[in-house]
Design a protein around this nucleic acid. Sequence first.
DNA 1: TTTATTATTCTACATTTGTAGAATAGAATT
DNA 2: AATTCTATTCTACAAATGTAGAATAATAAA
Lengths: 123, 123
Amino acid sequence: MNLPKSEEQLMQYLWEMEKAFMKDLIEKYPEPKPASTTIATLLKRLLDKKAIGFKKYGSVREYFPLISKEAYFSNQMNGVIKNFFNDSVSQFASFFTSKENLTDEQLKELQDIVQQQINARKK
Amino acid sequence: MNLPKSEEQLMQYLWEMEKAFMKDLIEKYPEPKPASTTIATLLKRLLDKKAIGFKKYGSVREYFPLISKEAYFSNQMNGVIKNFFNDSVSQFASFFTSKENLTDEQLKELQDIVQQQINARKK
DNA sequence: TTTATTATTCTACATTTGTAGAATAGAATT
DNA sequence: AATTCTATTCTACAAATGTAGAATAATAAA
């Protein structure tokens, strides 16, 4: 699933809120907000793609994501890693740690995170 | 600079080759290759966007990237990190190490990479 | 119940993207 | 020189995307 920018943005809000009525979503947008019909269109397109679902409360719909942020993101990353680092995760990691402007603290954090992960696995 | 898939693919080849004549690019594509005019169109669009340039050899053009793979990729990543991890690199790293299906070896590699990076910095 | 408000669907339309045929120009080959 | 091949530009067009007005339905407020 690869969503266009505008829909991804909306998903972002929805992931954040977990579930929301249209009006809540509209509120999320910063000024200048898009027309409400624009948002309605996006919701409809996302429904068609089965990226979101809704539960009816009377006649009002409460929307919620059908694909998790994790799954979606993971998918995006795989694409990036495949395309830019011919599928080598470590090549990616290497690039990431050196080129991405990580501060020393962040690098240290990363070290901890990796260590934790390693510990968590050897059980 | 955010390029559409088809152009990104072409850039990918060009980054790999560093510089290339149109025919070399065509060769890069796997079967079924797109029509040569399709590639020509993409080259033109990339020229318009100033993502690539060319040097003339007689009447033949040798194309080359004007934006580096590093810069482009870095930009992509920043977008992803900003959108998905509200700008927190470590939050990203954490997600990456746990959710991305890293093998134990890859995780170890990552550990080394981080260590190296840390060493490289404390001069 | 009349009116104003909100949510949804439909329709519309300009851009952007993916793809490629037609036309043209220069270069290589016969 | 005539023919063929290659690169490039132009034009074209369908599909996807970004955006929103018009119409309609359902609800809430006057």
